[in-house]
Structures are given as C-alpha cells and as structure tokens.
C-alpha cells in the first residue's frame, strides 16, 4: 500500500492513548508513534523507544567546551603572549577555572538543544500526519496514535479493525 502512510486513531485522553500504545506493542506492531499536546509519562517507553541519547551528547559537548576553554587560556597566557605578572606562574590554572566552567556550560547547552533537534529529526516542516485535518488539535487537546504502513504487520483492514477495537473516537487514513 504505497499510497497510504498509515492509520491515525484519535483517543479521549492520555490514559487511553497509553493503553492503545501498549496494546499495539503487545500485538507486535513496531512502526508506530503517538502524538499528544504534552509529555505523557511512560508513553514512548511503552513503544520500545526508551534509550536516552541526549545525555551522552551533552556530556561530550561539555567536555569539548571545557577543554577548549582551558586550552584557549593556556595557549594565550603561557605560549602566544606570556606575560609575567609579579613572577606568578604562566599556567596559573586556578584563575582559568571560571572561563573553563562557563564554556563547558555554554557548549553543553548547545548540545542539549541541537542534540534534541537532531535526534527528533527536526526541523521538519512537512510530515504526512499533518494531512489529517483534525491533527492540528494534537497541539491543543487531541491525543492521536498512528500505526505506519511500513510496519511488516500492517494491513489496512486488519490494522483498522485492531485500532477500532481499542475504542478510539475515530480512525483516519493518513495520506503520504
């Protein structure tokens, strides 16, 4: 079924959505996603997406930031422009700590934002689910669950019957 992205079911609230996601995962579906106007605890984990990658990105960025901050100060103060201030050592590392810290924080903040966007595949202005007219309520008061046609177990009539069985408000086709 190349002319269909998937099936989108709308549910009443966060608990119903969570129940649907769990049921679909139990039934063997893997290519699916849930859409909600606010974060719902355990929702993504219940669909098997439960590995945190943002912390690793942030840690790497923090280390790069701190090392480059310290390196910059060391190179400037001890190598490129050595300035003897009252006979103190050129590598006066305690006075380099504030800038090292600040750059570590700066880089990790960029890491958190950009890492989150990359992992989420954003910015992405177009997405098939936006074709469903009611989907604009996913940013307000709508709770949606989508099973994608790419899923090996996907079958239009069977999957539709499965979604209908979860007691949704309604089920829509998603154009690609």
């Amino acid at each position: 079924m190349a002319d269909l992205y998937g099936l989108l079911a709308e549910f009443d609230g966060p608990d119903e959505l969570l129940k649907a996601a769990k049921a679909a995962y139990r039934a063997g579906y893997r290519k699916m996603d849930a859409f909600s106007p606010m974060p719902i605890h355990d929702l993504s984990e219940s669909m098997g997406y439960d590995k945190h990658r943002v912390p690793t990105i942030v840690l790497i960025c923090a280390l790069i930031g701190a090392c480059s901050g310290f390196g910059l100060q060391y190179w400037i103060s001890a190598i490129d422009y050595p300035l003897n201030v009252g006979g103190r050592p050129l590598l006066s590392w305690p006075s380099f700590i504030p800038v090292t810290f600040e750059l570590g924080v700066l880089f990790s903040a960029f890491g958190a934002l950009i890492g989150m966007l990359i992992l989420n595949g954003l910015p992405r202005p177009y997405h098939p689910v936006f074709n469903v007219p009611d989907f604009e309520r996913a940013s307000g008061d709508g709770f949606f669950f989508c099973i994608e046609a790419e899923d090996p177990q996907f079958d239009v009539s069977e999957t539709r019957a499965f979604l209908e069985g979860l007691n949704p408000k309604k089920v829509d086709d998603v154009e690609p």
């Binding site: 996601a21 859409f35 974060p39 984990e45 989150m116 992992l119 954003l122």
Partner: peptide, 16 residues
C-alpha cells in the same frame, strides 16, 4: 520547527 508532539519527541525533549 515542525514540532508534532510525537511521543519520541517528548521523550528526548524532556531529557534535554
């Protein structure tokens, strides 16, 4: 940025 409130988005978002 094309935010669509996907559960996977929220998952990474909350951690960030």
């Amino acid at each position: 940025m094309g935010w669509r409130g996907s559960a996977k988005h929220w998952f990474n978002y909350e951690m960030a």
